[in-house]
Computed example of a mutant assay.
Amino acid sequence: MPPDHAAPLLTLALYQPDIPQNAGTILRMCACLRLRAAIIEPAGFPVSDRHFRRAGMDYLSHVDIARHSSWAAFETWRRESGGRLILLSTKASLAYTSFSFALGDILLVGRESAGAPEEVHAAADARLVIPLETSMRSLNVAVAAAMVAGEAMRQIRLNGMA
């Protein structure tokens, strides 16, 4: 991240993303909102993918991206960082608006095609859901990430943590 920026409020982590446009959009949001990003490999596309680059535009050079070769590597990094792991999942029961976010939290979104596996669910400090109409399956992962990151940032700023 460029040195003229203050420390990020949160980290937004992508678990094995498989749609380059969504990953690029999320990373662009991270750059614009001063969020750190983490990508847990393997991704379903190369970082040179034109769709990824187009969605991220020239913002990608402005985001602090930690790349992790595996879930185990990410977990090692997370334990060292001390951040709580907050998983966004359609399988969770706690609404994101009912959760108390804190500075340093790591918001994790699963794969667009398959979500997050059980080992990721088991490692999470909290699992949150965005309540939807009962006949609807899920939101686009970039939209869900933006909604929850916005609420987390609102709470952190409201509570004077940033």
Rank of each mutant, 00 (worst) to 15 (best):
Pro46Cys: 04
Asp58Cys: 04
Arg54Ile: 10
Ser70Tyr: 06
Arg67Lys: 05
Ile39Lys: 00
Ser61Ile: 05
Pro46Glu: 10
Leu85Thr: 07
Pro131His: 11
Arg84Lys: 11
Ala73Arg: 02
Pro131Ser: 12
Ala116Val: 12
Gly24Ser: 04
Ile26Asn: 01
Gly44Tyr: 07
Ile26Tyr: 03
Glu118Lys: 14
Gly115Ser: 10
Phe101Glu: 01
Ala123Leu: 13
Phe101Leu: 01
Arg67Met: 14
Met29Val: 07
Trp71His: 01
Asp64Tyr: 02
Leu107Pro: 02
Pro117Arg: 05
Phe99Glu: 11
Ile130Gly: 07
Phe45Ile: 09
Ser89Leu: 06
Ala37Leu: 09
Arg67Tyr: 13
His68Trp: 01
Leu60Pro: 01
Ile40Asn: 00
Arg54Ala: 07
Ala92Val: 11
Glu80His: 13
Ala37Pro: 06
Leu60Lys: 01
Leu103Asp: 05
Phe52Asp: 04
Gly56Asp: 09
Ala116Lys: 07
Ala37Met: 08
Phe101Asn: 04
Ala73Ser: 14
Leu33Cys: 15
Ser70Val: 12
His62Trp: 06
Val109Gly: 00
Ala123Cys: 11
Asp125Gln: 12
Leu87Arg: 04
Leu87Asp: 03
Ile106Glu: 09
Ser48Gln: 10
Gly24Ala: 04
Thr25Ser: 15
Leu85Phe: 08
Ser100Trp: 06
Ser113His: 12
Arg111Ile: 13
Ala37His: 04
Ile39Tyr: 00
Thr97Ile: 11
Cys32Leu: 09
Thr25Lys: 00
Ala116Gln: 08
Arg28Phe: 10
Arg50Thr: 13
Ser98Tyr: 05
Ala66Gln: 10
Ala55Asn: 05
Arg79Asp: 05
Leu33Val: 12
Glu41Asp: 13
Val129Lys: 14
Leu132Gly: 09
His121Met: 15
Gly82Val: 12
Ile65Trp: 00
Ile26Val: 15
Ser69Met: 02
Tyr59Val: 06
Thr90Cys: 03
Glu118Leu: 15
Ala55Trp: 01
Ala116Thr: 14
Ala43Ile: 06
Arg36Leu: 04
Ala66Tyr: 03
Ala37Lys: 11
Val129Arg: 15
Ser89Ile: 08
Ala73Thr: 07
Pro117Ala: 09
Ala123Arg: 10
Leu85Trp: 03
Thr134Asp: 08
Arg28Ile: 14
His121Leu: 15
Leu88Pro: 06
Phe101Met: 03
Ala38Asn: 03
Ala66Ile: 08
Ala102Trp: 08
Gly115His: 09
Asp64His: 09
Trp77Gly: 09
Arg36His: 13
Val63Pro: 00
Thr134Gln: 14
Ser98Thr: 09
Glu133Gln: 13
Ala92Gly: 11
Thr97Lys: 12
Arg28Cys: 14
